[in-house]
Design a protein around this nucleic acid. Structure first.
Lengths: 216, 216
DNA sequence: CGGAGTGATTTA
DNA sequence: TAAATCACTCCG
């Protein structure tokens, strides 16, 4: 008599959490298994996202392998990398959109309002802090002194957050006159200068310099 | 209003087949797209190999480009090359397996039974003939006088037909004594000699020489 | 348990 | 490196 559907203790989770593995008996996926977790109160969890939402910051599931129920340190590196990339892309989308809409007359006001980061930026991953994002901002301000061609891939339109050419701002490829160039450069310069001032005034630039993620 | 996820007719396939392109919306691969095909009965196909297996010899997908859904005559040359290589690898898989199981006492009998090629060898690609395979056999008998290391890739286990190191026989990397080597060499020599005799006796060697694929 | 959507792996 | 295939997750 085989004992299936047994709820096992799961040392990687807080005391009282149980893990269960159920083998599929028929169909195309016969032989595959589903893994479930049960909270101390008996609530059932069917996926890692569901588990993460429930546990929140009380447990870091970054390197938790849902299927085995064990911590896999190897996963940590990949997750960190992925989160950083997502943050960075989101930041650029956000920032370039801001710059694009600026006119020189309202740069300062705009920059100040920019300090409220959009929801998407704030909610990416449990380990994400405003500090990390601002660090990215500070970095980005100093890294591009190259020719600007704009985004050439059509994919950028559909999914700008990921498909941006990371060395180019968010705008389509364009043809411009010399006057256009001067005008645009002025706007960008003013916008950047104002942002830097705003950052300094707020003490945020310092925070950005001393972030824990030093390997960006 | 953008129309996504629309199943389009695909003129390159038989009537009733549809093609669909779906853009990935999130995650690391956001912005990339997946192409699917649907048979007249609604079955979904997610890759060219899967499609090929289903259509078998009823449609020649040699120059079919899965992503665009169109026939690309330029692909033909490459495919011919690839098919030949696959045939060749399949042959070696087959033959080395035969040799591996031989004992010197039953070499001749084994060789004669080997003339029935296994199904996998006979059904690869619409243009494949026994003649082509026998040509490959004849070639292979005379081309390898190199050090033998065996197959080192773990992938060879899963997909031997394609992933064989084409300069090495089908066996795992091994450690052997001098005696092992002499014993094995004897077996291989005898097996090859017997095969050559069998080929000659059956008139197959001639067929192998005059195959249409002269550019192997 | 199915299957669309996405990650992971392998290949050219 | 990017593209193609394959495997898996996750939620209905």
């Amino acid at each position: 008599m085989i004992m299936e559907r047994k709820r096992m203790d799961c040392p990687a989770l807080p005391p009282g959490w149980k893990k269960e593995e159920v083998i599929r008996k028929s169909g195309l996926s016969a032989g595959k298994s589903d893994v479930y977790y049960y909270s101390p109160t008996g609530k059932k969890f069917r996926s890692k996202p569901q588990l993460s939402r429930y546990l929140g910051n009380t447990v870091d599931l970054g390197c938790f392998d849902f299927r085995t129920g064990k911590m896999m340190p190897s996963k940590l590196q990949k997750n960190k990398q992925r989160l950083r990339n997502e943050n960075f892309s989101l930041f650029k989308l956000f920032w370039e959109k801001r710059l694009k809409g600026l006119r020189s007359s309202d740069v300062t006001e705009e920059v100040l309002r920019s300090m409220e980061l959009p929801k998407g930026l704030q909610s990416v991953g449990p380990a994400t802090t405003d500090e990390t994002l601002l660090s990215a901002i500070a970095s980005a301000l100093h890294m591009s002194s190259n020719p600007i061609t704009g985004q050439t891939s059509a994919a950028a339109e559909k999914n700008p957050a990921v498909w941006l050419n990371t060395s180019q701002p968010l705008c389509k490829a364009f043809v411009v006159t010399d006057e256009d160039i001067r005008e645009q450069e002025l706007k960008v310069h003013q916008a950047r200068k104002s942002l830097e001032e705003a950052l300094m005034a707020d003490g945020l630039a310092r925070a950005a310099e001393s972030t824990r993620d030093t390997d960006i």
